[in-house]
Structures are given as structure tokens and as C-alpha cells.
């Protein structure tokens, strides 16, 4: 079952990359989310999969009474999800602002920082 999940991770990464390579800001945002999900799944799967047994020690015991899911990747992913969401929101609003200011969501027309006819370096001392 691990290998099936590995292929699913690959699909997420491929879709995310494809969207990120787009020139439309909104599609890049969608790609970012998908890519983030793919990476989260990647960490999750790399920590090995265990069915249904949450990493929780039963009440009254000091140790779990059987094999449990790996808690470490879960802790890593949990914060990654929330931070990913915060970043997603930020980029969304940024894209919206850019759309308002530049009247475009196509990265080809967003050339304020690197204009096409940037000045040549001066040839003097």
C-alpha cells in the first residue's frame, strides 16, 4: 500500500508543478496548495503508514499497548498545514492586490520591478 501512496504523492507533485508553471497568478496559487498537500503526504508516507491506530496512549497506561502510527511526521505536518494555509491566504491577498494595482493577473505583464527596457550600466567612472 505504501507504493500506491507514493504514486499518489507523485500525482500531487506533478499537478502542483504544472499549475505553478502557469502564468496566471490564481492558478499558481492553486498549484501551491496542491504542491503543499503533496509534500505533506510525502512526509507522512516517508514516516511509514499504520492503519487507524492514532498515536495516543490509552488512559491508565504508560506505553501504548501495540503498534501505533508514527507521531513525529504528524507533528511536523500539523504545523505545516496551518502555516501553509497562512501563506496561502497571504499570497491570495497579494495576488488580489497586484491584480488591482496592475490590472492583470498574468505574470508576463507584471514587470514593475524588472522592466523590459531596464537601463544599461553607465560606461564612465
Amino acid at each position: 500500500m505504501d507504493f500506491v501512496l507514493a504514486i499518489v504523492v507523485g500525482l500531487f507533485i506533478a499537478t502542483g508543478s504544472y499549475f505553478l508553471l502557469s502564468r496566471s497568478l490564481i492558478r499558481m496559487l492553486l498549484g501551491l496548495t496542491v504542491f503543499g498537500n503533496g509534500v505533506n503526504l510525502l512526509i507522512f508516507t516517508a514516516g511509514r503508514l499504520t492503519r487507524e491506530v492514532a498515536p495516543i496512549v490509552p488512559t491508565g497506561l504508560d506505553q501504548p499497548d501495540g503498534p501505533i502510527a508514527n507521531p513525529l511526521p504528524q507533528a511536523l505536518i500539523l504545523t505545516a498545514i496551518v502555516i501553509g494555509f497562512a501563506m496561502f491566504s497571504f499570497l491570495l491577498v497579494l495576488a488580489y492586490r497586484a491584480y488591482q494595482s496592475l490590472d492583470a493577473d498574468n505574470t508576463d505583464t507584471m514587470r514593475v520591478a524588472e522592466p523590459e527596457d531596464s537601463p544599461r550600466p553607465p560606461l564612465s567612472y
Binding site: 492514532a54 495516543i56 500539523l78 504545523t79 496551518v82
Partner: peptide, 12 residues
């Protein structure tokens, strides 16, 4: 701390 849950989920 003892069951599924926590600050992140609660906050969301």
C-alpha cells in the same frame, strides 16, 4: 493533550 485535538485544530 490526551485525546485528538489541540490548539491548532481548536483555533481553526
Amino acid at each position: 493533550h490526551n485525546e485528538p485535538g489541540g490548539g491548532f485544530i481548536g483555533g481553526l
